[in-house]
Nucleic acid binder design. Structure first.
Lengths: 150, 150
DNA sequence: AATGCTGCTGCAGTCTGGTCGCATTAGCGT
DNA sequence: ACGCTAATGCGACCAGACTGCAGCAGCATT
């Protein structure tokens, strides 16, 4: 099996599925592996455009879709704004503060009984990664309850 | 305290806060109390427009915002589409199938350990109503795993 | 190295869901 | 019945995302 934990592995997978190694794809995959996570499509586009200025945003979206179909990455909705993209190998759940927008990454374990109860009571298989869990972080909760942002 | 479980009570509350009783508001509140839940802004607009055809969608949004500020209703994001509005008195969590879009209403209890673990480990107060829990319903899971819709 | 098939791209346009500014209308206290 | 001003209708606008199309460029082949 192809190693999806390196940029080279991902590009190889792309080729194995009949895809072509274009500049935009190479740079996009590099940007995905370059430090940090929770990157939005716009941020990835900006990173790619540093080296290839006229790669269009729609190309980024098309390549992100393709990489998602291949199982290389997943996208998450962390709140009202744009979606964020993550390498599938390091995907995780999120707690997002409705007030300050801060996100906390959490492992599967925290969902414990929710996942089990959903399955046993409703036959529902929870996807802990696609949508974030919304709420209020410690700092904002301490600063006072209201939802509105600072 | 004003009774938010009847249309009259809500309209009274509106007045108590310096608001005016306009036709669009009256009809909107009636539409909210009329059977069913999970109504989108467009659906509510359509319901209002049956009796007052030139109430504008932006008026619906403004009134929904106002009612939300007053604590009469809450909105939830059930997936990729438009938000849905619920009377605060009967709000609940949701499990939404990524494949067929079906929703299952669930009570607070199902979130059990998630709520507690988020609080003790991260000081994070989970809001179980604002964003739905995403996943796959029994029928779709049985029909085969892929995410794509029918 | 040149050729040609076809997958990929840039572009501009479109779509959805929602918000805003502004002139006008209409609630309602007096 | 009057007048203050909240609320409305309208159109423009916004962000995030997607699509059709003509042309460009990977890469297998010659």
């Amino acid at each position: 099996m192809t190693d999806l934990r390196t940029a080279e592995g991902v590009l190889r997978l792309l080729r194995e599925h009949g895809g072509r190694l274009t500049t935009s794809r190479r740079l996009l995959v590099e940007a995905l592996f370059a430090g940090g996570d929770h990157k939005t499509a716009e941020e990835l586009a900006a990173a790619v455009q540093v080296r290839a200025p006229d790669v269009h945003l729609s190309t980024i979206y098309r390549n992100l879709d393709e990489l998602e179909r291949l199982g290389v990455l997943v996208h998450s909705h962390l709140g009202h704004g744009p979606a964020s993209y993550h390498l599938a190998a390091e995907a995780h759940g999120h707690l997002v503060c409705e007030r300050c927008g801060g996100t906390i990454e959490v492992g599967e374990e925290i969902f414990g009984t929710l996942v089990r109860a959903a399955r046993t009571r409703h036959g529902f298989v929870v996807d802990t990664r696609h949508f974030a869990i919304s709420g209020m972080c410690a700092a904002c909760a301490a600063a006072g309850g209201g939802i509105p942002a600072p």
